[in-house]
Amino acid sequence: MSTTVSILGCGWLGTALGKSLLRKGWNVKGSTSSTKSCNDLEMTGISTFYVKVKPKGVEVDYNSFFSTDVLIVSIPPTRTDCVEESYPQKVNQIAQKAEEIGISKVLFISSSSVYESQNKEVREGDEGSPEKQSGRALIKAEKVLTHNPKFKTTVIRFGGLIGYDRNPVKFLIYKSEVAGETPVNLIHRDDCVGIITQIIEKDIWGETFNASSPEHPVKREFYSKAAKISELPAPVFSNTKENYKIVNSDKLINALDYKFKYQSPMDYLKEVEEWAYRI
């Protein structure tokens, strides 16, 4: 019997994940909260549902979306003034829905933004008090799910997502005074999909994992090369010191026996450069 997976939030990562799982023969349900996105998602072959999560409830066209072996929650915090309160409330609504339907396994997509930048390597358990509201909101949301005894939750804290049409240099284009010696914490979408798939296949629940490429080049090296390949202006780098963190993914690597396709974000840039050269 094939596995049924429901992906709550089929955006840039969720849609790619759903398509990959379909190719493996799994039953895949995906959700979106806009009519246009519904039409686009249906074209992929993913069973498409309208689901909108609010702080006080969940709007869903068919409850069968939640009839699943695994619920993947892939809805990041939005940029609002009260995200630290509203986002955990939304995730609590999802938890209540999971309880109501009887879902036993939940996979929550979180972020390495839950860690403070304290100029050191960070591992699971080093959360502290993040600088951004979104990071603090994610910590609260994680606890809503992991503290619920009605189902088992595994949390994945991804670094910054790169790959395909997501050109990393566009985040810093035309910026000046970028601290060039700050290490980056990035992960390619292919590795995100591979990690999520292996967690489900190996039935690893009740865990929290960091997921970032094991190597961490500095911004000056990475973004200068990204700009050159893309023929875009490079950021203006400075020798200014800024607080940083280096996200350690050893726990994930050991638990899954996982080998990153992109050990370093620089590997992705080499691939892009080779592709551009062949054209």
Rank of each mutant, 00 (worst) to 15 (best):
Asp203Gln: 10
Pro183Ala: 07
Lys140Cys: 12
Glu127Phe: 12
Lys140Arg: 15
Met266Phe: 01
Lys90Pro: 07
Leu107Ser: 04
Thr80Gly: 15
Thr197His: 08
Leu145Thr: 09
Leu71Cys: 11
Tyr62Glu: 15
Glu181Cys: 10
Val91Phe: 00
Glu181Phe: 11
Gly25Cys: 06
Val144His: 12
Ser213Gln: 02
Arg220Asn: 07
Ile279Lys: 13
Arg23Ile: 00
Gln93Val: 02
Glu274Ser: 09
Gly206Cys: 08
Val114Trp: 07
Glu215Gly: 01
Pro130Phe: 15
Val53Gln: 10
Gln118Ile: 03
Ser47Trp: 13
Lys54Leu: 13
Lys259Met: 05
Asp81Leu: 15
Glu59Thr: 13
Glu201His: 01
Glu231His: 08
Phe237Met: 07
Leu269Gly: 08
Asp190Met: 11
Lys219Ser: 09
Gly57Thr: 14
Ser117Phe: 12
Ala137Val: 01
Tyr62Ser: 15
Tyr87Glu: 12
Thr240Tyr: 13
Leu252Val: 02
Asp190Trp: 06
Tyr258Arg: 12
Lys140Ser: 14
Glu177Phe: 07
Met43Arg: 15
Glu142His: 09
Val218Phe: 09
Gly18Leu: 00
Ile199Ala: 01
Ser213Glu: 01
Lys54Ser: 13
Ser264Glu: 10
Tyr115Cys: 08
Trp12Lys: 04
Glu42Ile: 09
Ala227Met: 07
Ser34Trp: 13
Gly45Gln: 13
Ile173Glu: 01
Lys97Cys: 11
Gly45Glu: 10
Ile46Lys: 03
Ala95Asn: 10
Trp205Asp: 08
Asn63Thr: 14
Asn243Ile: 00
Asp257Glu: 09
Glu42His: 06
Arg123Ile: 07
Phe65Met: 10
Asn254Arg: 05
Glu121Gly: 02
Gln96Pro: 04
Thr44Ala: 08
Phe209Asn: 10
Glu242Asp: 12
Asn63Glu: 15
Glu181Trp: 05
Leu8Tyr: 10
Asp267Tyr: 07
Ser230Thr: 06
Thr44Arg: 06
Thr154Gln: 04
Thr78Asp: 06
Tyr62Ile: 02
Gly14Met: 02
Lys170Tyr: 03
